[in-house]
Design a protein around this nucleic acid. Structure first.
Lengths: 249, 249
DNA sequence: CGAACGTTTGAGATGACTCAAGCGTTGTGG
DNA sequence: CCACAACGCTTGAGTCATCTCAAACGTTCG
């Protein structure tokens, strides 16, 4: 089943079996896209939303000179552009960061789901609000942390989200992005990200090599980035305890 | 009527008369708070949401040393913490920036409204997604603009939002915040904000004096901050054309 | 009138940037 | 299977934007 991570821990409550089945039935098509494929452009109208099954997807704004600032990174299980369901018009661009498998859900199906399953409206709304909470954490990261702190904060966030998705054991995970992507996430230059990575390596906090992140000390990394996972609204009660170590005490 | 600006231009469609009446009927109490009064704390549970009638309210995160990063500023008509309705737990703090009049809506009333008026769920959801779009613009501002650009971008945003609320004529508006607030919004120090304001004054873009902002050239200010109002999702068709000049061509 | 608060200015320190070059890895076509 | 191109990573040197610390000034309000 290609949607086994579907919205896991992202709705404030587990999806009921019937809800998950209905959502999966709503999927129009599933396809695998190569890295750096555009999925949506700022200003464009849209009548479908995208579930990320595998890989990573970014949302970003271009500045006047074409320099990017990422505003979100999505992990498998995320409803990448569910906000486009009410908004209809995108205010930013969406692109695969890696090879990615995506499932498409027509907005007409979402309308039907909201009519048929009264609890789903609240759960889908919740999922978009978690995205907003992550946006707030990114604002904090850019506004108040230095370069090392920003990268430490982002990698801590990625780790917790990937643990929740079942794609990290809490210490290492596959992450096929580049130092340049990290720069566009953290509001830095790729040159400086490189120096930051060296520092994180020398301080024995983490390494990022050949598309894999290894975190030697999640608690110290989180402390360096002032990371507190509360904003991710992961329901620790419903989550598999083995996959939910206390990373940030 | 203290809620005449209620959610104006924030729902993707105008509120119907019946919807506005129902929402006003849901208001529990209205009170005027002095500046710097806390309305909600990170980590706290909440069972009501706040409509801002008059004044300004901030949402912010504290860093380890108690330094603030604002993640949102609300203008009259905003549903300040509507996101707390689905989320229930706050991930940040909320505080008045100025003397402010607020109306409180219990979540039980919002539940009732969503049952009674089927169109409202979508409109309230929309309003929270506009907040998220503003968050994204703030991420862009912090990640990719220099100090002058950040302040120019924020003041351009404030101007357009206040025009929409009927509180700016497109060139000047009352804004009872301090340079230190501006610093906490733009991820700068108050000393540097002061130098930025001098530069904006010398370049004849805008002045901020005795709690009033005057923008001499909205288009040039917007250009300096790479500001494009599309992310505010203001429905220009339904807005009063006199209050919606083309500020950022 | 005095206290509290916000604004303004200066001088020196520093974190991140720019530009430039070299190195390592990966994938591909001859 | 090698060679080369493309891409990403690494390092250095010099510059610049913003920060820190410190002090003085202006304004508001009780």
């Amino acid at each position: 089943m290609f949607t086994k991570r579907l919205l896991r821990d992202k709705c404030g409550a587990r999806l009921e079996g019937s809800e998950r089945r209905r959502l999966e039935a709503a999927i129009g098509n599933v396809e695998t896209l190569s890295a750096r494929t555009s999925i949506g452009r700022a200003g464009s109208q849209t009548c479908k939303s995208t579930l990320l099954v595998e890989g990573f997807i970014s949302r970003y704004c271009d500045d006047r000179n074409g320099v990017r600032q990422l505003v979100a990174v999505h992990v498998p299980g995320d409803f990448v552009d569910l906000h486009a369901f009410p908004l209809k018009v995108l205010d930013h661009n969406i692109e695969t960061m890696t090879t990615a498998t995506v499932a498409t859900v027509p907005h007409s199906e979402l309308d039907a789901i909201m009519r048929e399953l009264p609890g789903m409206a609240r759960k889908l709304w919740f999922a978009t609000l978690v995205d907003a909470a992550i946006h707030r954490a990114w604002i904090f990261r850019l506004g108040r942390l230095d370069a090392v702190g920003r990268v430490a904060h982002f990698l801590s966030e990625a780790n917790v989200r990937l643990v929740s998705a079942g794609l990290s054991d809490g210490f290492r995970f596959a992450f096929g992005i580049t130092q340049n992507d990290l720069a566009e996430i953290c509001g830095l230059t790729n040159v400086h990200v490189n120096r930051v990575m060296r520092q994180l390596r020398e301080e024995k906090l983490c390494v990022f090599r050949s598309s894999r992140v290894e975190i030697f000390d999640p608690a110290r990394l989180a402390a360096r980035g002032q990371f507190d996972p509360a904003y991710l609204y992961i329901d620790t009660a419903s989550a598999d305890p083995i996959l939910q170590p206390s990373l940030c005490s």
